[in-house]
Design a binder for these strands. Sequence first.
RNA 1: GCGCCCGUAGCUCAGUGGACAGAGCAUCUGACUUCGGAUCAGAUGGUCGGGGGUUCGAAUCCCUCCGGGCGCGCCA
Length: 564
Amino acid sequence: MEDSLRERVAEAVTGAWQSAIAGGSLPPLPDDERSQVDVHVERPAHPEHGDFATNLAMKLARPYRRSPMAIAQTLAAELEGQIGREAGRTQLADLITSVEVAPPGFLNFRLSERALEATIDRILSEPKSWGRRQAAIPQRVNVEFVSANPTGPLHIGNARGAFVGDLLARVLAAAGHEVSREYYFNDFGAQVSNLGASILALRDAKEVPEDGYRGSYVAELAADLPPRLVESAGTADDPAVVVGQWASERVRAGIEASLERLGVHFDVWKTEGSLHREGWVERAVAKLREAGYVYERDGATWFRSTDFGDDKDRVIYRSNGQPTYFAADIGYITEKFRRSFDHLVYVWGADHHGTVARVRNAATAMGYDPAAVEILLIAWVRFVRDGREISMSKRSGEFITLDELLDEVGVDAARWFFASRGHTTGIDFDIELAKKQSNENPVYYVQYAHARIASILRKASETGLSLADSVEGALSDEPEAGLARAVARLPDVVEDAAEAKETQGITAFATELATTFHAFYRDARVVDPDEPDRSRGRLALVAATQVTLANALALLGISAPELM
RNA sequence: GCGCCCGUAGCUCAGUGGACAGAGCAUCUGACUUCGGAUCAGAUGGUCGGGGGUUCGAAUCCCUCCGGGCGCGCCA
């Protein structure tokens, strides 16, 4: 059975519309008009409007040239007829108890007790899969994020992209897609050689080059240089490159460790060099050339990006024969699609928005569906300490590393902070405030609700009370029904998050559920030896609440403690 | 100059076509000698940056102005 009550209501509404047409109470609609009307079911902002609502009648008012209220009445009559006929034995009557028409044309629905009971029982019988969806069309999705070059440790400027990409990957997986997480970096370019040169300069107590790297990590690398490497570098054409490659591998391993500490794991680490070596760039450019979008000018090779609306054409190979970064991007697109991904997601910093058009244009020019290449631009975070902005630059060596941030703020709080904000809005992160307010942070509020339930369950087992096998009959009153209603929303929250590629809905849901639970706790005594039957029912409900909180937190990569 | 993103309560942010605009924090007032007070109940607080338009309906879509951020390389 479908876990999403919302989806089942939507199916019922669609069915009512169709049977109204079949029964002649509404005329058929031409296909083109019909396809413009999608059946949308949502949770009303106000509880007195019921558990679900649809605006379908208002959407149909124009094509039908009838008043929204009249159409709503027709649809409501259709649904109520079904509920009446099926009462006591079938699906619709088990799902909703009433259909109300409300001006200017809403249809409002109330969930049946049976639907809530079935949901709670289902959560307890299969807690792990609660909230996970089966996508209508499961896709293989590649999510590429962070992708910082290994020339220094990750700093707090990389934090948002790391969290957003990871959250997105988790949400897409929960929504039923197959997700691969990918980190892309340059292991051979000028930056790596600059890193090597900086290390060698420090080691020889010389001035670090103009475009070199400073920072204490460079000194540490210099101190750790293995003598044998120095020897072999001495005989190499370019010692800086040899040392740089050694250093960048060290740095990369450190980056991986930092990310693991954040709870961010990658499936694939891809290097720009491999795209060249394996011929992906060459083949992609040939593909573009065949399609007629490549030309030579001033000794360089260009992609005719303007054919797709870009404001200028873009260089693929420079006049010195060297490929640009964009060349690798092109090769990478074909390489990813060759691995049979259906959808590519790029998580980029907002400063890269100038390159979005050319990458999508190149994908289009090579014959790929541009809709399958999705680039998310993550707005900046202003890190602030005591009201003063913290400036960051790897080259100057002034920055706060990700590890330092975690030492101060904690992974759960940091994850919650980024998960609860949309990725397109620039935000302020005041480190001192984050520390000071840690006890007031909503993440602890949610975790506390989870731990409190764990405590109740411990108490119950000490008292010798166990969970009811089924909550049948246990949800007929408040506050039980209200808590069950809140719990039942998780699958819809997951679907909305995956759809919007945003996670704020999940943090908002978790907070609301915690609030509902805390109020329930106040009003309903769960462990009460004098009323064992009622206790057993409430224990089951509370256990389902705990599963829901834990699964929502897991979706965000946040721990769900049994004790705090 | 051109392009993209953003502007919602004192602060940090949700809400991006629906029914009286929300949360957390801050401020103020209250609460159970029973399951965890990291809790609960209530109050204060908003010209949704300004103006115009589209729509039965706009914080949400369009235009314009103001303010802020970021881009506009044969750098990455």
